[in-house]
Design a protein around this nucleic acid. Structure first.
Lengths: 341, 341
DNA sequence: CTGAAAGCGCTTACAG
DNA sequence: CTGAAAGCGCTTACAG
């Protein structure tokens, strides 16, 4: 059987308390006993039981991370930078992908609650979560939202600017003479989706361009949506759009696949802009005019906010809720045709 | 304070044992008491403590996953498919990236051992791990190696065929008249690195082509290595290679970036083949002649092997160690110039 | 500097 | 069908 602290204690002829003190490094222990204990630990190949420790200490050194899709390069980088940050403070990551499925999301939240994670970093699937987060907040377990926000609970949030960035992106199309501008977006109840939509609509409105319903396509933030909506838009009979706004990297990818399949050239036949860039974009032609996001910064910032909370649980300096909106960058590519030429 | 099973018991006027029986669903409980208990659970917003349960049951429902780099698309997909598989059986993933750093790797192994994971899926950073895995095997915690194998311990393994695939890849270059073929590889103590090297050397040997030392570049399985070695090879004075074999996707990416920067055209100026494909390769020109891997299959298979072990811990049908080698595919692209024309 | 005792919150045979 | 008791393996005041 796996040796326990008791076994170590017996072999070193001390009490379990002393072994614990040696191993945790808190409290006084004489050099001699310390040596004895360490020797016994070594001889037995003792490995302390973290589960027991967690139960006793009511701390698991675990941070839950819930994202829509760990295979999306954006979240990959968010997660990786979170890991880099928190592993220095001895936390591990429990990782979950919801596929933006509300019921999976609820299940994961319940499981992570049962597992008594110390903190949660979460990209919620919808703007109104109802009471799903309440148990965490009630139990004083810090939660940091990333990439997406919610409206019905006050909670730390780290997102990237969405509406103004989208406005600017669409404006850049309008400046090139585009009016028939379509948007391929995700659900109208995801915060990023809403903001990007709003930027689009405001840019159109400000330019006095009417928005045609058939130019507004809603699906999910995935490649399939981009592909299907792309095919639909590309094959529109009368009023094919001259430009399309892809609201995330996966949708952009799907659109480009559809264009490639239908032999539609970018930007000659249709212009493309996107929120978020493709991985390996240096090798992809044409370079898409896009809002550049900074997933590493999002992850790092979220981790820092969370760690700050984790370190001040007792202290009365309970800072108020932080809502951090990180700036994006605009990259001008070669995916937009100038219709004014 | 967070309610415990005792609080629920008191409110429902039953014993904690009974509450436990209701919640776990094992053992007999009358319909009436069951209802009482569930009502109390609901009213108190009771959420059972998984840590306590884990301690008692000596099961954590946790699977540790250690990979070199969670941001490499290959491992992203391995991890994602593992998650898909094991989440159905109520396991969660504790995720760690080692950066192929032996000391980080050891630390993670120790931490996961302390955390009493139920099983481990692991892509080891070197062929000989010494005793690092021993504690797991001694404690009867199943381990499945993915992508890479080790020599000093018998353990379940799921890898993709490496030597023969590489042989074929290099052979395809030779058939096109190439002789000055370089290889950019990772460390000579990583199994995949070794196999791919062996395939290369055997193909050269069988064709009677001498191997020039300056054509063998070793670094890491990352983009930087591809980039640096690419620059070095591209700028070789006398005997610039006519073709380069990239031993993984990241190295290929680095090579292509270097080529792009130096305005070296593929395949006109230099030919390229690779083990493993780039993400988004449909959009990247030229299509690289490559060995196609199947990370989803690797992840799924590894998860299945692990789950099988997990379900037969007690039973005496302790299957012997499995070593699964999955087949790869060969894709002929347009990145190789035919020197025989 | 060290040990005895209590307790973290569950589960699980064992009686009844 | 239900409850009392023991115990999982630690940590942590509290005495001494």
């Amino acid at each position: 059987m796996k040796p326990t602290i008791k076994d170590v204690a017996e072999r070193a002829k001390v009490s379990p308390s002393t072994v614990s003190r040696v191993l945790t490094g808190v409290g006084y222990v004489s050099a001699a006993t310390k040596e004895k204990v360490l020797k016994a630990v070594d001889e037995l190949g003792y490995n302390p039981n973290g589960v027991a420790r967690s139960l006793k200490r009511a701390k698991t050194q675990t941070i839950g991370v819930i994202v829509p899709d760990i295979s999306n390069p954006y979240f990959v980088r968010v997660v990786r930078s979170i890991e880099n940050c928190v592993s220095k403070s001895d936390y591990n990551l429990l990782l979950c992908s919801t596929d933006d499925n509300a019921s999976k999301e609820e299940t994961f939240l319940r499981i992570l609650r049962e597992r008594r994670i110390d903190g949660l970093i979460f990209a919620p699937s919808r703007l109104e979560l109802g009471s799903a987060l309440k148990p965490f907040l009630d139990a004083n377990i810090p939660v940091v939202l990333v990439d997406r926000t919610i409206t019905d609970v006050e909670v730390d949030t780290v997102v990237e600017e969405g509406e103004q960035s989208s406005y600017r992106l669409v404006q850049s199309l309008i400046e090139m003479g585009h009016e028939r501008i379509a948007i391929v977006n995700s659900k109208p109840y995801i915060s990023t989706s809403i903001e990007r939509q709003r930027g689009y609509e405001r840019a159109m409105l400000d330019a006095g361009i009417p928005i045609r319903p058939q130019y507004i396509q809603h699906g999910r933030f995935d490649q399939e949506t981009g592909y299907l909506c792309g095919k639909r838009l590309f094959t529109l009979k009368d009023d094919r759009p001259t430009a399309i706004f892809a609201t995330n990297n996966s949708i952009l990818y799907g659109l480009m696949l559809a264009a490639r399949e239908l032999l539609i050239r970018i930007p000659e036949d249709i212009s493309l802009v996107s929120f978020g860039d493709l991985e390996y974009s240096e090798l992809i032609f044409p370079r898409v005019t896009a809002i550049l996001q900074h997933p590493d910064r999002v992850g790092t910032t979220a981790a820092e906010v969370l760690l700050a909370r984790l370190n001040h649980t007792h202290v009365e300096e309970v800072q108020k809720t932080r809502r951090i909106v990180l700036p994006t960058d605009f990259r001008c590519g070669t995916s937009v045709r100038n219709l004014r030429d």
